[in-house]
Nucleic acid binder design. Structure first.
Lengths: 241, 241
DNA sequence: TCAATTCATTGACATTTGTCAATCGGAAAA
DNA sequence: TTTTCCGATTGACAAATGTCAATGAATTGA
């Protein structure tokens, strides 16, 4: 059963999914690898399927692999004391999960959980170490990737600490539309609780802000479908704080 | 006048301060460089002195150098809309300021400002690129450094979003004692406003929490000197949130 | 010395945000 | 169909946090 699913997922690329499937040009850190290096990396990779809700990586376990998302949507979250969660960002097709304790303490500092069904590859971090050693361009790409994540987290930190709730919800909606779903009426597939966990507030508060936006005709909402009607207003609200 | 100061600062190491002066073993990302590589890196470095309060790096300017702190204390802060600041962390002797825009958009994503007098070296980022290409161990060290900063910021983000003010102030005090000043009665040299900006609250709120801690005999405060009397309690407050 | 400035502190109050409990509504199970 | 369950929503209220203004304390400069 599971093997079949994998074959389906990999229809175009057999066992080279981490290489050939990632063909968005600039965004692909594997572009710079030679065929031999690709072979090395892919040789012992595992292609794994997760159902919605399953945990892909668990905070505080040992970090011995990097993961490439081939298909689906997952959430990256930091688990705090007592059930408290903060969803840092969403990842989907072509995302590469690195960072966290990789290279340092070899411990994961966040949990990754499947939102929809997810197909992904697990690549042994030893392979990554070898590639960093043998291919300086690859090291460069990893540095870039890390820095991008760093900056994204910094912006997140600033937003969450310096803005009131409406500003944070506006930021979240713009993020979902422009960076994750790339569509306007979009289906988040996330519960209200999860959306609240992305903006650092309680579910009830989130719902109330959403309601305000609805009654101001800035958005329309139907279940987990959200339609942004007035992006300008959202931007204004985001800037105002 | 300025040249003299530089000479003073570099008394032990002439123009090789970024190499020889950094001798704490593991923490030094330059340890792995060969003599030739060090020469390359150091050849065109600039050693610069800043007075307290001066801006070392400014957010949104172009990022063409990395900076090594040789002496002194500086604060790294993100500037938000309308005077709002968030101090991300403090850096002192032997710290290396990289990350944020380096390798990507070449724009700084934070401001660095001297808290005390600061002596530091500016190294052209071209040199760093060359070293990443030629020395894979160095690339590795940079990746580690980046990841460490990433994790620190993540913990910060979780703390600030999930804890009430007393927990955040407790975290700040523990951070100052255990990671920055490494002493118990310590002199922060920071204003109340700055301390508040490190824990994401207003100055008035910060002062009130400090007062509570004082009247509970957890700390004693005299100006910018803070003495932690009961670290256990602080840890408890931090955990409780 | 005295005025002027800046930072720290305090109090009163308003606003924001969270908590708790109740209700609603749809989907799954019996 | 009916029941059950779970997520979404709402309201009332409490707690946390911010804002504003006044005061105090220390420092600087005239």
């Amino acid at each position: 059963m599971e093997p079949r699913r994998i074959e389906e997922a990999c229809a175009n690329c057999k066992d080279r999914c981490c290489a050939r499937c990632f063909n968005d040009g600039d965004d692909n850190i594997f572009n710079c690898l030679t065929t031999e290096e690709l072979e090395l990396m892919v040789k012992e990779k595992r292609h794994i399927h997760f159902n919605a809700g399953e945990t892909i990586l668990k905070q505080n376990t040992s970090a011995s692999h990097i993961v490439c998302i081939k298909r689906g949507l997952a959430k990256i979250m930091a688990e705090g004391e007592g059930d408290k969660k903060l969803i840092l960002r969403l990842v989907s097709t072509h995302a590469i999960l690195t960072g966290g304790g990789l290279f340092i303490d070899e411990v994961r500092h966040f949990t990754v959980q499947a939102v929809t069904e997810v197909d992904c590859c697990f690549i042994d971090s030893d392979k990554i170490y070898e590639l960093v050693s043998s291919n300086s361009q690859f090291a460069f790409e990893l540095l870039k990737l890390n820095n991008r994540q760093n900056i994204q987290m910094l912006n997140n930190l600033v937003g969450i600490t310096q803005k009131y709730m409406p500003g944070r919800v506006a930021d979240l909606l713009l993020y979902l539309k422009n960076e994750i779903f790339l569509a306007n009426p979009f289906n988040t597939r996330l519960s209200r609780q999860e959306l609240a966990d992305m903006s650092g507030m309680t579910m009830e508060s989130f719902i109330r802000i959403l309601k305000e936006f609805k009654s101001s005709n800035i958005i329309s909402v139907d279940g987990s479908n959200i339609h942004i009607l007035d992006e300008e207003s959202l931007i204004k609200i985001s800037k105002k704080g």
